[in-house]
Amino acid sequence: MTFINYAAKEINCKIVYYGPGLGGKTTNLQHIYTKTAPDRKGKMISLATETDRTLFFDFLPLDLGSIRGFTTRFHLYTVPGQVFYDASRKLILKGVDGVVFVADSQAERMEANVESIRNLESNLDDYGLKLVSLPYTLQFNKRDIPSVMPTDEMYRMLNYKREPTFEASATTGFGVFETLKSVAKQILIELRKK
């Protein structure tokens, strides 16, 4: 849910990074955190297990500057990817304005990708939201790993509604900001339609 505060002249939007476990959602946020100027970001919070697997969520507040005099704030969240954390995953989606789906490009993870998109659809449905009408960007992550699945094949399997799609390598940062920019842009265009 976009929160517009006319007194403070702020727009606040919520972006959720979704996808299967170990796909690179947290790494996306870590790269954004590392490369963003200190005055443009808040503290990054990770509620993770002792082995650094996301337990509840990661959270990164970003201030992208102003648009028409309004400070534009994006709150970036990741969900826990592991299948059995579904209850937590659903909670994070509450009030979402846009979703980035981080797909793992390794062939053996394709089934997990497909299952995670179905899970996203079903969890959105519980909030009365439809993926087809929500700002949505697809990211093919881990392109730096040799022998990953060709992108056209991935696109055939994972494309949902001809959403903007980006190749990325979250560990090197390739494609990370392009992905964020794409979903942020769709959210702001929704504001215009209001």
Binding site: F3, N12, G42, K43, I45, L47, L91, I92, K94, G95
Partner: peptide, 30 residues
């Protein structure tokens, strides 16, 4: 707000990281 965004505040708010507080409180409530 239930989604973790601060609507308003009062008191010694500068002593706290209000953005993180808002997000974690919403997570806690959820």
């Amino acid at each position: 707000d239930k989604n973790g965004q601060q609507i308003a505040a009062a008191g010694d708010v500068e002593n706290f990281d209000s953005t993180s507080l808002a997000s974690l409180t919403a997570g806690n409530v959820a």
